[in-house]
Computed example of a mutant assay.
Amino acid sequence: MSTRHEHGSTINALAWLVVHAAQHLDHVQRLFRDEATSLSDTLSRVAGGQAHVNPLGVLQQRGIQLDILAARRADAIEHLDVTVGTYRQAVAADRATPRLQPSHSPAQAAPPPQDRAGHTH
């Protein structure tokens, strides 16, 4: 996506922001998935009587961590949606902007030099 636009252009910068937002979402999604999987394993062991149940709570701070990751994931999704929307608007506006087309008429050659009397050399 970011290689489709002129380097240094506003649209190219927006494309890189989209790429970065998508990578960030992937990262947060992996963290969320890993934590949820780990908690699921813990809860399965507790439910199966294979793990000690802490009287202060089974999840303790891990439940809060999962909630925080869920919120970060939601924020990352919203940020990616906004960034993609902005990119799409910029591309649409760029496509709607008329471009100056180079002239297809042959270039006119400069007239040959003349002396003071108007004679061509």
Rank of each mutant, 00 (worst) to 15 (best):
N12R: 12
N12Q: 06
H79N: 06
A15W: 05
A70C: 05
R116P: 03
Q60V: 06
V28A: 07
Q114M: 15
R95W: 08
Y87S: 11
A74F: 04
H20E: 08
H5S: 07
H52M: 11
V19K: 09
E35G: 00
W16Y: 05
V46R: 04
W16I: 01
Q108P: 07
R116E: 15
I77D: 15
A47D: 07
V46K: 08
T10A: 09
V84R: 15
G63Y: 03
A74P: 00
L31V: 04
H79D: 12
P106C: 06
G118K: 13
L56Y: 09
T120R: 15
D67Y: 05
H27T: 10
D26F: 01
M1I: 07
D81A: 12
I68A: 02
V18Q: 10
P111W: 08
L56V: 03
G85T: 14
H24Y: 06
R72S: 09
S103D: 03
T86R: 14
S2I: 05
H121N: 14
H104K: 07
L17A: 13
A15Y: 07
A93P: 00
Y87I: 04
R30L: 11
G49N: 12
P113C: 07
A92P: 08
D67C: 02
A96G: 13
R95S: 12
V82H: 03
V91P: 02
V58E: 09
R62E: 08
F32Q: 11
G49V: 10
M1W: 00
W16A: 00
A107Y: 07
A13Q: 02
L59E: 08
A15D: 08
G8M: 05
L56P: 07
L31T: 03
R95V: 01
A90N: 04
R88N: 09
L17I: 03
E78F: 04
L59K: 04
T83D: 03
L69W: 09
V58N: 03
P55M: 10
S9E: 07
L39A: 12
A107P: 09
G63L: 02
H24C: 01
A36V: 09
A51W: 09
A110D: 11
V58H: 07
H79W: 01
A74I: 06
V53G: 15
W16C: 01
A70P: 03
V19Q: 10
T3G: 10
A96M: 10
A22C: 02
L31C: 12
I68N: 06
Q89L: 14
A47P: 00
Q23V: 00
Q29E: 13
S105G: 04
G118F: 05
Q65D: 05
V28S: 09
L25Y: 12
S38K: 15
V84E: 14
Q108C: 03
R88E: 10
W16S: 00
L39N: 02
A22I: 00
V53N: 12
R95H: 13
H104A: 14
I11F: 01
R30A: 08
A15K: 07
W16G: 00
D67N: 09
